[in-house]
Each structure stands twice: as C-alpha cells, then as structure tokens.
Amino acid sequence: MSLPELDWQIFYGRVAWAIVLAALISAAWPRAWALSRARLAAIAVCAAVLQALPGEGAPAYWLGLVFQWPSALLVGLSAAKLHFAWQGKPEKKVMSAQLAALIAVAGAALYLDAIGLLSLGLFYAGFGPRGAPLLALLLAVLCSAAIVRGQARVQSVAVLGALLLFAVPRLPTGNLWDALLDPLLWGWALCSLAAAYRHGWTLSAARAGAGAGAAATTA
C-alpha cells in the first residue's frame, strides 16, 4: 500500500475544492442573469483565489475538516459541468441515471459497512494490494470501451480520469473508494435519482390524465 505525500494531498484538495466550488456556483447561478463566459471565468478565478489563501483562510481547510478531500470523480464531473457552462450549455446533465444508480448503491454499501451494519471491511479493501488495483483495471477497461463506442463518454472520461489519479499519483488518499466516492457525490447521485423518479412519475400521471380525457371525450 503506497500513500501520496501530504503536500500533494493538500495541493490536490485546494485545486479540487476550487473546481467543485466553481461548479456549484455556476449551477446555482440565477437564470435571470445570463451566465456569460466572462462571469464564468470570474467565478473560477474567485474560487481559485479563495482556495489559495494561506492556512485557515482558505475554505478548503474547513471543507477538508468536514468532508476531507473531494473524490476525483466529483472533481471530474464538476469540471465537465464547467465545460458545458463555458460552451453555453449549463443545463446539460453530467450525472446520468445509470451512474447515479451505481454511486447510490456503492455509497449505501460503503456507509452501511462503515457504521458496522455490514461489517465487510469494504473501505479498507480500497487500500488492498490486489483487489483494488484489479477492480480499478476492470473499470478502466469498461470505461475505455464505452468511450470507443461513444456511450456515456462524459461519465466514462470522468471515471477514467479518477482511476488514473488513483493509479499514478495515488490521489486523493491512496484508497480506491476515495477516488470514486464521497458524501457530496453520493448526495448528488441521490438527488439526481429522486429528480428522475419525480420526472418519470409526473410524465406518467400526465399521460394517464390525457388518456382518461381522451376516453371521456370519445364516450
């Protein structure tokens, strides 16, 4: 088991939190104000400057105390969100239903294991010298195949980038699960699934109402 240097972890944390913070602000930007490239650049610069403040002056210090480091996958998806905002497509989703379901299930298993309800040692297995690298390799092959086929390219690139950070510099912590999952990402996945379910239920209700209205008119 090899762990990254603390200095590299701190550097990663500051850069990662800057990207995530910029993505959060751009996602919450009021629709009444057009999010131009100039404003998006200003948001990104301000986020970077804030995270570059020394010691406890940086939000990354306090965020690290609460959430530790953001997962590399969260950073990748946040970067994709900023990329689409830069292209003038802030409404484009980067959290697909399939990815959200996988993250939700994996997160539930890990967190239940962490509080002792499963007692499988899943988190510590992420430091394993064999299982974790093999799982990372399998995921990398699947993501590469998806990219070649043109399926879920944004999500596949984000996962592949997270796996590369885990495999080469061992960021953020040297644990595979920390590269692919964190509480904020898990919450994002759950909210995405809830929104998808609500949207599907609304469509079903509308179709049922339309069908009933058509039947009544025919009668």
Score class of each variant (00 low, 15 high):
Leu165Ser: 02
Gly187Ser: 04
Ala140Trp: 07
Met95Ser: 13
Ala32Tyr: 12
Gly200Cys: 04
Leu21Lys: 09
Gly107Asn: 01
Ala85Cys: 14
Leu117Gln: 04
Leu122Trp: 01
Val157Gly: 08
Ala44Arg: 10
Ser144Pro: 11
Ser119Lys: 10
Ala85Ile: 09
Ala140Lys: 04
Gly64Glu: 00
Gly121Arg: 02
Pro30Ala: 02
Tyr111Arg: 09
Leu120His: 01
Glu5His: 13
Val157Tyr: 08
Ala47Ser: 03
Cys46Met: 08
Arg31Thr: 14
Ser78Pro: 07
Val20Met: 02
Thr173Pro: 09
Ala52Ser: 11
Gly76Thr: 00
Leu193Asn: 00
Ala42Leu: 08
Arg39Asp: 08
Arg14Trp: 02
Ile147Lys: 01
Leu21Thr: 11
Ala167His: 08
Trp201Pro: 14
Gly161Glu: 07
Arg207Ala: 13
Leu142Ser: 12
His199Glu: 14
Leu184Gln: 06
Leu112Asp: 06
Val105Met: 04
Leu24Trp: 14
Trp177Gln: 06
Val168Leu: 09
Leu181His: 00
Ala205Leu: 10
Ala140Ser: 10
Val45Trp: 05
Val20Trp: 04
Trp29Ile: 05
Ala47Cys: 07
Ser78Tyr: 02
Pro70Ser: 04
Met1Lys: 08
Ile103Gly: 06
Gly57Gln: 09
Leu142Trp: 12
Leu110Glu: 09
Thr202Trp: 11
Asp182Tyr: 03
Val157Arg: 07
Trp201Met: 15
Gln87Glu: 15
Arg198Leu: 15
Gln155Trp: 11
Pro30Ile: 01
Leu165Val: 03
Ser156Lys: 05
Leu117Ile: 08
Phe11Gly: 15
Gly200Lys: 04
Pro4Val: 01
Pro59Asp: 04
Tyr124Arg: 15
Leu163His: 01
Met95Asp: 10
Leu73Met: 03
Val159Ile: 14
Leu35Glu: 01
Gly57Ala: 08
Leu74Ser: 13
Gln51Phe: 12
Ser204Arg: 08
Gly64His: 07
Ile25Val: 05
Leu77Pro: 08
Ala18His: 07
Lys81Trp: 10
Leu142Ile: 12
Gly150Met: 06
Trp17Ala: 04
Ala106Trp: 10
Lys92Met: 12
Trp69Glu: 09
Ala212Ser: 14
Leu21Arg: 05
Ser36Cys: 07
Pro169Phe: 00
Leu82His: 07
Ala60Cys: 03
Pro30Val: 01
Pro59Cys: 02
Thr218Arg: 15
Val168Gly: 06
Gly107Thr: 04
Trp17Glu: 00
Leu120Gln: 03
Arg170Thr: 05
Gly200Ile: 05
Ala167Arg: 10
Ala22Val: 02
Gly128Gln: 09
Leu203Arg: 13
Ile10Leu: 11
Ala16Val: 05
Leu180Glu: 01
Ala104Phe: 10
Gln98Pro: 12
Gly200Met: 03
Leu82Val: 11
Ala108His: 12
Phe127Ser: 10
Gly64Phe: 03
Ile147Glu: 02
Ala216His: 15
Ala48Val: 14
Arg31Phe: 10
Leu21Met: 14
Ala106Glu: 07
Ala158Thr: 03
